[in-house]
């Protein structure tokens, strides 16, 4: 167990080092990064001054080591637009807005998936099964932001403002973006629980449990579901990543003040310190989630060997 944790932690550190390096080289893809780190209206002389001030005239490896030292302090420089520390801005948008949205979507997509997935398996080819199959096929085939637009069209325009289309601040504002973000992962989870359950329900111990005369509900929820849960954990981990990625675009659709929208809005103004800090935080969350998913396996299934 300890060896496993150590290995995973080392791996995470390695990946983070890669992420930091990628962020460092991102603004250097086209050569000189200075124009990306000053105001777009800056004159040649101002750019030259900034180059000296930011230390961008030093050798590449000196800059790189310096960057590696400043990252653990969360120092990604100052936002060009708002003249504030970039990391501070990113964190303000991550918490609470993005976390709220992702958490709501995650809850929706996992909690609803359990009864729907079980019903699809126990009533194979029934109404729920067919509906979830169709929903999954369609939701995989449409851009999530278009689903969002259609929900806005329906609930905010056609139904005369039943739910607000844009902005944040109340639970009602959260409904449309959370549903939009949760829809595709929900359909996917339902299908996964279904196929997991179908497999598990064939097992001998399920037959034994039934033979003992246990209530069917008990057999399904206590014996079968627990063993069908493993793929769901993987997919939940993956769909959390999907949700963060999706948040970039869903936040833009609904003008939700999260960090995805912050990054997108930083692009036209070429506010690179904010983009760098945002990309880094996204990757950090991603790596952390993957680590948690790995650990959760061992809780759900003690047979999973940690090597």
């Amino acid at each position: 167990m300890r060896a496993f944790l150590l290995r995973r932690a080392l791996h995470a550190v390695f990946v983070l080092w890669g992420v930091v390096s990628a962020v460092f080289f991102l603004v250097r893809l086209t050569g000189d990064p200075t124009p990306f780190l000053v105001d777009q209206t800056a004159t040649q002389q101002e750019i030259a001054e900034a180059r000296t001030r930011l230390g961008l005239d030093r050798a590449l490896h000196v800059q790189y080591l310096d960057f590696l030292r400043s990252v653990p302090r969360g120092d990604f420089g100052t936002s060009i637009r708002e003249k504030r520390p970039a990391m501070q801005m990113v964190l303000e948008h991550l918490w609470p807005a993005t976390v709220e949205l992702a958490a709501a979507a995650l809850l929706l997509s996992t909690i609803l998936a359990i009864p729907l997935g079980v019903a699809s398996a126990t009533h194979k080819n029934g109404a729920v099964d067919h509906a979830s199959r169709l929903a999954s096929l369609f939701l995989q085939s449409m851009p999530s932001f278009w689903l969002g637009l259609m929900l806005i069209l329906l609930f905010a325009v056609e139904l005369g403002g039943l739910l607000p289309a844009f902005g944040s601040g109340s639970l009602r504002h959260l409904i449309l973006p959370a549903v939009t973000l949760a829809a595709a992962p929900l359909a996917q989870n339902v299908r996964l629980i279904r196929s997991g359950m179908l497999e598990v329900l064939q097992q001998d111990y399920v037959r034994t449990a039934r033979a003992k005369g246990l209530a069917e509900r008990f057999v399904i929820y206590r014996h079968a579901l627990r063993n069908a849960a493993i793929p769901v954990i993987t997919v939940t981990g993956l769909s959390l990543g999907f949700m963060l990625s999706g948040a970039v675009i869903i936040e833009t659709v609904f003008s939700w003040p999260g960090m995805g929208r912050l990054i997108v809005q930083a692009v036209p103004g070429r506010d690179f310190p904010v983009i760098q800090a945002g990309v880094f935080v996204f990757a950090l969350i991603f790596v952390g989630l993957n680590l948690i998913v790995d650990l959760l396996y061992t809780v759900v299934d003690p047979r999973v060997r940690l090597t």
Partner: peptide
């Protein structure tokens, strides 16, 4: 894979 694809694409296209 540690980067969500869309975030990575947004950042790279912002530079290129």
């Amino acid at each position: 894979l540690a980067f969500p694809v869309l975030v990575l694409a947004v950042a790279v296209l912002a530079v290129l």
